[in-house]
Amino acid sequence: MLSLVICTLDEHEAIGGVLSELDEHLQDINHEIIVVDDSTDERTANVVHAYALAHPQVRLLRRYKASGLSSAAIKGWDIARGRILAIMDGDGQHDPAMIRALLQKLSDPNIDVAVASRYLDDSRSGLNGLRHRISRTGTWLTDIMLGVPLVDPLSGCFAMTREWYTQVRRELSGLGFKILIDVVASGSRRPHTAQAPTLLRARAGGASKLDTRVIIDLMTLLIEKRTRGRFTAAAVMNGAAVFSTLCMQWLSLGVLLKLAIPIWLAMLLSVSFGLAGRFAIDHIMTPRSLRPRTFQGACRQWLAFYASRWSDIPLNACFALALCGVHCPWTVAVLGGVLLAESRYHLTQRAGVSA
């Protein structure tokens, strides 16, 4: 009847207790639990595997060098066998009793998606300080941009019918951590929803996943869904990275020219500064779990980035200098150089992937 997906990231301290609580609440329901683990080590997987030896309804899917709750949830649902597909966190913040409440909501044949909603009966969320304010801001933005009929479209605990998942599966972006937005905004119509009130509990293990990448993912996902895929999240993020490169190169070139540096040298240096801006944005857009954890690792990543983009320096600079030579304003020349270098890079990447 039920396939419940739990996505974990370094939550070995909490996942055993969550599975035990679920066993109590779901013991009279024909169900399976699929744990999709993206942890950086094997401790979470070991806890799940040990629990599954005595509880055959628990299955483990281990992913390596992957990140993002949304893509993990989709992986789990794709291999699920239940009529009802659900999701909750593995850090203990979601009350396992909510799963039964969501199943009761879905007993109505007119309901497609049932959500455990903060803010339904209470303005509190169970979050503290900055995280609460960010959650409320994200909820407001989602309502403004998508008009999703939910008081808590950022909830991470919900259930849906297999029929609804089948309808939206091809349109899911799998981006970031807010899978509910993806699920309710990807259909040809808005789903019929039901909500059950909840508050988050204290986290029993793991750490908050909130970082700059989560916020970027939310904003770009909203843009993608609002434009019905005309501007994809990946395209928006790449556009932001190119714009940062351009701004850094404009700024540095303007300063160098003011210092009376020869234009050929100023252009070469400005391209290097532009790439530094691109690297900084790429770092911010990288999920925290995939970022280097040591200074040496960060240095290796920086060197690898410049090794992959070194040809941008002569290509960008020479093209921009050629445009300046025919009396093109240097601001426009820089734009042309950046666009040429980006086009070359992406064409090379596509050729490499195809090969």
Score class of each variant (00 low, 15 high):
2 L>Q: 01
3 S>P: 00
12 H>Y: 09
15 I>W: 02
23 D>C: 08
26 L>R: 04
27 Q>N: 15
29 I>L: 14
29 I>M: 10
31 H>E: 07
31 H>Q: 09
32 E>L: 05
34 I>S: 04
37 D>K: 06
38 D>P: 02
39 S>W: 00
39 S>D: 06
40 T>E: 12
41 D>S: 13
43 R>I: 02
45 A>T: 06
51 Y>N: 03
52 A>G: 08
60 L>S: 10
62 R>A: 08
62 R>L: 04
64 Y>A: 10
64 Y>Q: 13
66 A>N: 07
66 A>Y: 03
67 S>N: 11
71 S>T: 14
74 I>R: 07
74 I>G: 01
78 D>N: 15
81 R>Q: 14
81 R>G: 10
83 R>Y: 08
89 D>N: 14
92 G>H: 00
92 G>M: 01
95 D>E: 14
95 D>A: 13
96 P>C: 10
99 I>G: 04
101 A>M: 11
101 A>Y: 04
102 L>A: 06
103 L>V: 07
106 L>W: 00
110 N>T: 14
114 A>H: 06
115 V>Q: 10
120 L>N: 07
122 D>V: 05
125 S>D: 06
126 G>C: 06
127 L>Y: 11
133 R>L: 02
137 T>P: 00
137 T>Q: 01
138 G>W: 00
139 T>S: 08
141 L>A: 13
145 M>A: 15
151 V>L: 09
155 S>I: 03
155 S>D: 04
157 C>Q: 12
160 M>D: 01
164 W>P: 02
166 T>M: 06
169 R>Q: 14
172 L>A: 04
174 G>M: 08
179 I>V: 12
182 D>V: 05
184 V>R: 01
185 A>K: 04
187 G>N: 09
188 S>M: 11
192 H>C: 11
196 A>D: 07
197 P>T: 12
199 L>E: 05
202 A>R: 13
204 A>V: 03
208 S>N: 09
208 S>P: 04
211 D>E: 12
212 T>V: 12
212 T>N: 10
214 V>F: 05
214 V>G: 00
215 I>D: 00
218 L>C: 08
224 E>P: 03
230 R>Q: 11
234 A>E: 11
238 N>W: 02
238 N>Y: 05
241 A>N: 13
244 S>Q: 14
248 M>W: 06
252 S>F: 06
263 I>T: 13
263 I>Q: 11
265 L>G: 10
265 L>I: 15
267 M>D: 05
270 S>W: 00
271 V>S: 14
273 F>D: 01
277 G>N: 10
280 A>P: 01
281 I>M: 14
285 M>D: 11
285 M>E: 09
287 P>D: 09
291 R>L: 10
293 R>P: 00
296 Q>N: 08
298 A>N: 11
298 A>L: 13
304 A>D: 15
305 F>T: 09
306 Y>P: 04
313 I>Y: 02
315 L>R: 03
318 C>V: 13
321 L>A: 10
322 A>E: 08
322 A>D: 07
325 G>L: 08
328 C>V: 15
332 V>C: 07
334 V>H: 01
335 L>V: 10
335 L>D: 00
336 G>D: 09
337 G>L: 02
338 V>T: 14
339 L>W: 04
344 R>K: 12
346 H>Q: 11
346 H>K: 09
346 H>C: 05
348 T>I: 05
354 S>P: 00
355 A>M: 08
